[in-house]
């Protein structure tokens, strides 16, 4: 699928990662999961696997949840963050960083873990991670 290839290309994710997975496109979203998930037709599920990306007229936006699992093998367009930067960006703050990454969607990495997707316009980095909950920042209760 073209959108999967686009994401692999953007982040340098090896083909091997998607080899045992399948993807389907439904409306403006691509879902990724095991072949068994995608072949399940006994009933109509609300959700199959994880959202891989949202499709917009001029761009493909990878999701943070999919990248947390599949992005661990990525080799480019990754920005490494300190503990403090990680807490700050998860809580919705913009960062200013100089990084070796192209403008556009990037993977945000804390230690060896991809925490989600960011939008980079040098030097401004904005979080694209869903803010369904926050994390503790130094000094907070």
């Amino acid at each position: 699928m073209k959108h999967v290839r686009d994401i692999m290309e953007r982040f340098g994710i090896p083909e091997e990662v998607f080899k045992r997975l399948a993807a389907i496109e439904a409306q403006d979203t691509v879902f990724v999961g095991t072949p068994e998930v995608m072949k399940f037709t006994a009933v109509r599920p609300m959700r199959c696997g994880i959202r891989l990306c949202r499709l917009f007229p001029y761009s493909v936006k990878p999701t943070s949840f999919a990248m947390q699992v599949l992005g661990r093998h990525a080799t480019r367009n990754i920005i490494d963050l300190s503990d403090e930067q990680t807490r700050s960006i998860i809580n919705g703050n913009e960062l200013r960083v100089e990084a070796e990454a192209d403008n556009g969607f990037v993977l945000l990495r804390w230690h060896e873990f991809v925490i989600g997707v960011g939008l980079y316009r040098k030097p401004v980095l904005k979080s694209q991670i869903p803010r369904f909950r926050s994390v503790e920042e130094p000094g907070s209760d």
Binding site: V37, A42, V43, P45, M46, C48, G49
Partner: peptide, 25 residues
């Protein structure tokens, strides 16, 4: 769905239906 996403479960489908109807299917 939120927890399936956060845990990274690629092998899971989520359904919302009567358990008896699903089990028959």
């Amino acid at each position: 769905i939120g927890n399936v996403d956060r845990a990274g479960c690629l092998n899971t489908v989520v359904c919302r239906m009567d358990g008896g109807v699903l089990a028959r299917a």
